[in-house]
């Protein structure tokens, strides 16, 4: 009885750990968003800068994207702890089944795409999937999706690029350098550009999808707000200021741009990561 009560208390604490970071990010956004008047026109811009830290090479702005991604990471930590809390050999809870399903699915995905020797990449792939998908989905809560900031995705893509290069160098430095001069030495610049294009194309693919969705959503929302004010502006008092026409269409758009596109891009990023790393590794290593 005592242990059961304690387990329930831990459950509640972990659920709070899942919910609180996102709620905090939302509160921060609500508190800092300026009430832009309609007359200013549509503003398409990147993440809000909360404050700036002076750093050696370049000042570091702490933006909404950074804060939201930290919130998402904390939430994922909470989800992991919640799923594996009180885990038993004989499963008796749905959340343990969910945890095992996640682990099993990711393991199978990695095994089928990369082979048995890369099974250690399963947590990495799961991390990419979770972080990317949940970052994109956080726009459903009205947050600025971290994945629509190019810096975030570029960081992930550069990490993947480092891994790819690491595995290519495992086949020997000379083979790596010689790879640039194949099939003929004239191709060297093209090969180098192709090598550098990998992280850039990976990051721009993901970032472009999410960001274009955000831009289109913003434009449509603004258009609907103006339309609502034009058509329903005669209503008395504050009733006239409520954008009634914003109900409906943005939800359908968000179904595609936020949910489908976000999950799809997360999956594609993970798939490309797996394929690039698996093909970069030498055959016999």
């Amino acid at each position: 009885m005592q242990s059961k009560r304690r387990a329930r208390a831990v459950d509640i604490l972990l659920i709070l750990l899942i919910v609180l970071p996102l709620a905090g990010a939302m509160t921060l956004k609500v508190l800092t968003t300026p009430d832009a008047p309609l007359s200013e026109g549509v503003q398409i811009s990147g993440a809000q800068i909360y404050f700036t830290i002076p750093m050696p090479i370049q000042d570091l702005p702490i933006t909404a994207a950074q804060v939201n991604s930290w919130a998402v990471i904390l939430s994922i930590l909470g989800v992991c702890l919640y799923l594996t809390h009180g885990i038993k050999v004989i499963p008796d809870s749905k959340r343990q089944l969910a945890a095992e399903w996640i682990v099993d699915t990711v393991n199978r995905l990695v095994r089928s795409n990369m082979g048995e020797k890369f099974i250690g990449f399963a947590p990495f792939v799961a991390g990419i999937l979770a972080l990317s998908a949940l970052s994109s989905l956080s726009s459903l809560l009205g947050l600025f999706a971290p994945t629509s900031d190019v810096n975030i995705i570029l960081g992930w893509a550069i990490l993947v690029f480092i891994l790819i290069t690491h595995y290519k160098l495992k086949g020997g430095l000379w083979a790596y350098i010689k790879g640039f001069f194949s099939p003929i030495p004239v191709f060297a610049p093209l090969n180098i550009i192709g090598e550098i294009a990998t992280p850039i194309s990976m990051s721009f693919r993901h970032y472009g999808n999410v960001m274009s969705g955000m831009v289109i959503s913003t434009l449509i929302a603004f258009a609907l707000r103006s339309l609502s004010q034009t058509v329903l502006g005669w209503l008395p008092g504050t009733l006239g200021k409520i954008p009634f026409l914003q109900v409906g269409l943005p939800a359908v758009l968000s179904l595609y741009f936020d949910i489908f596109s976000g999950c799809m891009q997360a999956f594609i990023f993970a798939m490309l990561t797996m394929m690039f790393i698996a093909t970069a590794a030498p055959e016999d290593a």
Binding site: R205, G208, M211, V215, M264, Q265, F267, M271
Partner: peptide, 24 residues
Amino acid sequence: LILGCALAETTGLYGLIIGILLIF
């Protein structure tokens, strides 16, 4: 098909990014 389509969409997205940059 969905994976391939998402990959093929990349080039279009490059154009879209350039367009958004040029407009905004």
